[in-house]
Every structure is written in structure tokens, then in C-alpha cells.
């Protein structure tokens, strides 16, 4: 996913020399081609995320389109005030590229787990969030990011997600859907969608819920309140408080749909492990999602 993003950006940057890729000394094996082919549009700032973000804002104020690339917590929490004051308040065209959505860097430990970013970033003024599930959604999202001026944040997995949304249809730009046969919709964002798809595939065709994948949060405001499913289940690889499901719940507060949310209740645990292990541990793995869907099916048929 990160490769397809950076390679896609490289192709766009060849046509638009105002696009810059700025890294906080990360991206080994990912940013190399960009750096080699467009050295004048590449900058390794060193390990100083706060100054890097402030400088990106300065560059954007002069008409450049900087993409600031680093592993999740660093271009977010380490420099949250620079994002808030220098990028968002100034409404500047800076794109933050955060690698390692959720537990993508599971074994690296808590410092590298990106599970509170949606809560923190989504409240900032003028900010647009992007959270693609796979390389197909990355390809769709990139031109829309480039077409939109202002602060942007994209949350990417590490890689190897494959093409999960191949059979999905676009509902509106930024939201895709695979229709099911029940009165339930499972809405997720980011690459945890693979767990949702695996869970739904394990069900008989007549028991399958609709799956909705959200790659662009700006699309939520108009789309989500139109949903008429009796039951909605949100799934996110992120804390529940202030996260994706929380946003959906707010948008459905006037709706008759009953909303259930799956995500991380609290990160009190000190454990690390593979992404799959941690998804299972925090009950956002496919088995847990399958159980939840089956319970809701049972509830509706009772």
C-alpha cells in the first residue's frame, strides 16, 4: 500500500514540480525511487518532525504541495501542535502521509502503534482524512487528494494488503460498497477491511451483510445519514473513543439504525505481537467480527 502510494505520487510529481516528498528520515526501500528520479522534489529533513511540519507549512504557503512522510506517530503526535497551528489554522496545502495504520507495526510495540490518530487529527480545522483499505483505494484516493487544496492526512498500512475491494462498487467518491442480503451493514475504514471481508465470506450468502469501506472521511457527512439499515456494525483498527465508529455514531444520532462498534476499548495492555495477533487480541479479527455479525443476525431473526 505504501509502495503504491509513493509510486503513484512519483508519477504525479513528474507532471507537477510543486509536489514535494519530505521524509523524516524514514521510508527505506519505499522512497528510494522517488528520491533518485526527482531529487529536486525530495527532501530528507532529518529526525525532527516538529521542524519538518513547520517547514512544510512554510513551503505550502509559497505554493508547494509537500507530502510529509513518516511512521504513524511521528508525523502526528510528535508534531500535533505544528499540524494544528501552522498547517490547519493557516489552512495550508500540506499532506501528511502516516505509515503503519493500526497495528501494521505490531511487533514494534506501542511507540509504533497508530491507534489514536483519527481521534486527534479528525478534530482539527480544515483537515481532510483519507484511510484506504488496499492498493485500489490508494489509487482512487491519490488524485482526489491532489485535487483538493488544504490540510490532508492519509493513514496507510504497511504493505501486502492485496486488493480487498476488487468486487466493491463505488457508492460515492471515497466510499465503496459490496451489497449483502440482510438488513445489516458493516462499515469499516482502512486495511482492517480484510478482516471484515474474511468474516463475511465465511457466512452463507443469505446471511451476508452489506460491507461499506470508507477511504475518504469528507464523504461521510452526506452519505452516512442516508443509510437505512436496521443494524450497523462499525469496525476499526483504532481506539473506539473519538474514532471512526464514533464519527459514524454521531452522524446516525437521528437515525433509527442501531449501531454497534468494534474497535479497541482501551490500550491498557503492554503486549505486542503481529498485526493478526493484536487484531485477534483486541477482538477486531475476523472471528470476532463473524461472531458479532452472527449475533446481530440472530437478534434480527428472533
Amino acid at each position: 500500500m505504501r509502495n503504491s502510494f509513493v509510486n503513484g505520487l512519483l508519477e504525479e510529481a513528474k507532471k507537477d514540480e510543486s509536489i514535494l516528498l519530505i521524509t523524516g528520515d524514514l521510508g527505506y526501500g519505499v522512497i528510494d525511487r522517488f528520491a533518485q528520479e526527482l531529487p529536486k522534489q525530495f527532501l530528507n529533513f532529518g529526525i525532527n518532525e516538529q521542524s519538518m511540519m513547520g517547514a512544510a507549512a512554510g513551503l505550502a504557503s509559497k505554493g508547494f504541495k509537500p507530502f510529509v512522510y513518516s511512521i504513524g506517530n511521528f508525523p502526528t503526535f510528535r508534531c500535533l501542535e505544528q499540524i494544528r497551528n501552522d498547517v490547519c489554522h493557516m489552512n495550508l496545502n500540506v499532506s501528511i502521509v502516516a505509515l503503519g495504520a493500526g497495528f501494521s507495526y505490531g511487533t514494534a510495540g506501542y511507540s509504533h502503534h497508530l491507534v489514536e490518530d483519527i481521534s486527534a487529527i479528525s478534530v482539527l480545522p480544515n483537515m481532510s482524512l483519507y484511510s484506504p483499505a488496499d492498493t485500489l483505494e490508494v489509487t482512487n484516493v491519490l488524485p482526489r487528494m491532489l485535487a483538493k487544496a488544504g490540510p490532508k492526512y492519509i493513514r496507510l498500512g504497511k504493505g501486502g494488503e492485496g486488493q480487498i475491494t476488487e468486487k466493491f462498487q463505488e457508492a460515492v467518491p471515497g466510499i465503496s460498497i459490496m451489497s449483502g442480503s440482510t438488513d445489516i451493514a458493516v462499515i469499516s475504514t482502512g486495511n482492517v477491511l480484510s478482516e471484515v471481508v474474511t468474516a463475511v465470506d465465511a457466512l452463507a450468502a443469505e446471511l451476508r451483510p452489506t460491507i461499506i469501506s470508507v477511504s475518504e472521511f469528507d464523504a461521510l457527512v452526506d452519505y452516512i445519514p442516508t443509510l437505512r439499515y436496521r443494524r450497523i456494525l462499525t469496525v476499526e483498527e483504532h481506539l473506539l473513543r473519538g474514532g471512526f465508529g464514533s464519527i459514524i455514531l454521531e452522524l446516525l444520532s437521528q437515525s433509527k439504525s442501531v449501531v454497534y462498534r468494534k474497535g479497541i476499548h482501551s490500550l491498557s495492555s503492554q503486549i505486542s505481537g503481529s498485526q493478526q495477533y493484536l487484531r485477534n487480541h483486541y477482538e477486531i479479527g475476523f472471528e470476532s467480527i463473524l461472531n458479532s455479525i452472527q449475533e446481530i443476525n440472530k437478534e434480527l431473526s428472533a
Binding site: L43, Q50, S51, M52, M53, G54, A55, A56, A57, G58, L59, A60, S61, K62, G63, F64, E81, Q82, N85, D86
Partner: peptide
């Protein structure tokens, strides 16, 4: 501590 980093962005530009 915000002005100098932003100024660096302007100077690079």
C-alpha cells in the same frame, strides 16, 4: 518555537 521552522520552509521555497 513555530516561526523559525516555518521560515525555513519559506527560505527553501
Amino acid at each position: 518555537g513555530h516561526g523559525l521552522p516555518f521560515a525555513i520552509g519559506l527560505a527553501i521555497s
